[in-house]
Design a binder for these strands. Structure first.
Lengths: 169, 169
DNA sequence: GCATTATAGTATGGCGCCATACAAAATACC
DNA sequence: GGTATTTTGTATGGCGCCATACTATAATGC
């Protein structure tokens, strides 16, 4: 059903010859990756139409809900990304006149980042649009299908090293 | 069960207030993304232990199964990546002495890339290891769970723009 | 046969991410 | 009060990816 990228198809063919026991799991794995890649890509395409990347959208959204503004290091924490990455994303948002950095007058190391009116307007518009669309991918699912899929995804997630680590740190 | 990254949690909270109908779908979406991210990350970690990235591993693997060597543009096609990207990946593989470029003597535009003995040995080792491990993520699943998950993933995939496009181009 | 077009590989610059290292400023410690 | 440590933001350089533009070479058309 899902057309795998050639690299995955090739890896599967190879595995089929050498490790047939693993093939069923590999197929599932690639299907999950294909779904995530499709979601990411759709996401990026939609944001690109507004001149935004995913990283910048996350900042826009985080800033929109924090009324007093946020510092770069708070943004890094909430976006799950390093402070260094934030610097670059903020540069982009400032270039696009969606946000501005203000220097903090009590602690002179700190900055406060706030959206411009333009940024606020865009955030309002996009957050709703985006949530709507993300939710729509699973709109054709029944309640029990959703519960089932969630259970299976979680079960697989906990099998990964990353998932197991996150489970009990 | 799955601990969402903060950015996703924040987006969910916001949506919960404004677009409650979309929340169930969003949750599922983020769960799928979390699983894929965990798989990717595990993958990257394992390859990094051998000084490889995912992109380089794909080339290693493609070269290992094509005995006569491949040209950069064939590699690009099979890896699902542009020729420009291949140039960089090959530079890395050559630096690590895993592959070499040979000039084609009939068509002087062309190159032929081949693995070194070191590259061949590493490929042999890693392909098996990797397939094994990827398959293991779903090893705790019964046959019917696998079929069910596959069906649900495919159903969601076809709802995405990317998936729908790939379905019938 | 020579001009046009297509193909192959690369260079360049952008994005988002990371790790590392740094300067400035604030805080902690004695 | 003055040194040591921590915190903050940024710079730098690497990775993998893309799009675009360029050079060399081949193939095609007339």
């Amino acid at each position: 059903m899902i057309n795998f990228e050639q690299k995955y198809a090739a890896l599967l063919a190879q595995a089929d010859a050498k490790t047939p026991a693993a093939v069923a799991g590999m197929r599932l794995c690639f299907e999950a990756l294909a779904l995530a890649a499709a979601i990411d890509r759709d996401c990026a395409d939609r944001l690109a139409a507004h001149g935004l990347s995913e990283g910048r959208f996350v900042l826009l959204f985080l800033l929109a809900e924090a009324k007093g503004g946020l510092s770069p290091h708070e943004l890094a924490e909430r976006a799950g990304v390093t402070r260094g990455t934030i610097t670059g994303l903020l540069d982009g948002l400032e270039r696009a006149a969606l946000a501005r950095r203000f220097s903090h007058d009590v602690d002179r190391r700190k900055l406060t980042v706030q959206l411009t009116p333009k940024g606020r307007a865009l955030a309002r518009k996009l957050v709703a649009e985006h949530s709507q669309w993300i939710g729509a991918v699973f709109s054709g699912f029944t309640q029990s299908e959703r519960a089932l899929l969630s259970r299976l995804l979680t079960k697989a997630y906990l099998q990964t090293d990353t998932g197991a680590r996150a489970g009990k740190p």
